[in-house]
Write a protein that binds this DNA or RNA. Structure first.
Lengths: 174, 174
DNA sequence: CTTGGAAAGTCAACATGGCTGACATAAAAT
DNA sequence: ATTTTATGTCAGCCATGTTGACTTTCCAAG
């Protein structure tokens, strides 16, 4: 109903906006995401950890010193949910929760050596798959891949996503 | 370690294979997938259904008449898991399970009018987001998006993915 | 025709990881 | 001194995944 109008991109075909194309995109997301999580899941089976632990470890690695609240926002879960995960990671010595210097209520999260090791294991597997896919598809496709995924995100999340490792990390790790 | 060698693509930069690029891809998958499921999840809250019901409904809509076994393979869950979901959908009159004509042990699954209605609700929301992302990124990006996602899939799954709505659906719906 | 195996359904038990609600403590902010 | 914020915790609920065991129905091969 919208796709029928004369597109803003001149004479360009809008066939890529047909319902069939959209549905194939939806299915591609489903199947690819499953593959995407399969490798780390296999590794985690050997530990007593699950996907939730992986996600926490990933973002603590990416933003050493981030606060519990920040991680909460990134992961989009409740503090009770995160706490269950975080507690086991701290107890097992994979994560260190240092009391904040500027604000003593905050905890700045860091991976220990042991935590970094598991992180490497998990991300090696995940990056291997991603690298193979990137290599097979080529740089132009990869750029498109990233563009579409970013366009799918909610604006606020997109900002968060873009600020990781680009933006400043004030405080905490300092 | 691999990316350092002279690439097969001539003088092309391999910067898109750096760990940083791969990690951004991993994060993009995570955030985009969350957005991708958010809209249907919101709709499903009003019903007594969850994401698992949505997935079943989606694939039954896409391949009317597919068997329980086939759906099992597509979804990648156990029959006990699927059965719990399927039972409620049949009981609630969203899905019809017809005894197979050729093989009476099989059940061919179809959406009822009521089932099609919910499917439309859910996929309208999901396609709206996908359409917006596609439109924003443009056809070239969309092609790349699909290429990378397909390259990420396990080969067997990729074949399954590609055969949906392309390949013949012998039996069942006939 | 009998028998073996496949397709489906079901019951029970369990794990993970979401959620809400209620409450406690420490420290910052007003 | 009081309120608000950041964190942690307990308890319970729900959805959805798992394994294992067992039944019924039916096709197919001996």
């Amino acid at each position: 109903m919208m796709a029928g109008s004369a597109g803003p991109q001149g004479g360009e075909s809008l066939l890529f906006l047909t319902d069939e194309q959209l549905r194939k995109g939806i299915e591609a997301m489903f199947f690819a995401y499953r593959a995407f999580t399969a490798d780390p899941d296999r590794i985690l089976e050997n530990y007593d950890y699950g996907r939730a632990h992986h996600r926490a470890i990933h973002f603590i690695h990416r933003q050493p010193g981030l606060t519990v609240n920040a991680l909460l926002g990134t992961l989009g879960v409740t503090k009770q949910s995160l706490n269950r995960v975080l507690r086991t990671l701290v107890d097992d010595g994979l994560v260190e929760a240092r009391i904040g210097r500027r604000d003593k209520r905050e905890r700045n999260l860091f991976l220990t050596a042991k935590g970094e090791e598991l992180e490497r294991d998990l991300s090696d597997a995940q990056r291997a798959r991603m690298r193979a896919a990137y290599r097979a598809a080529g740089p132009v496709a990869v750029a498109g891949f990233r563009q579409v995924l970013e366009a799918m995100m909610d604006p606020e999340i997109r900002r968060q996503y873009q600020s990781i490792k680009d933006g400043a990390f004030r405080d905490g790790a300092a």
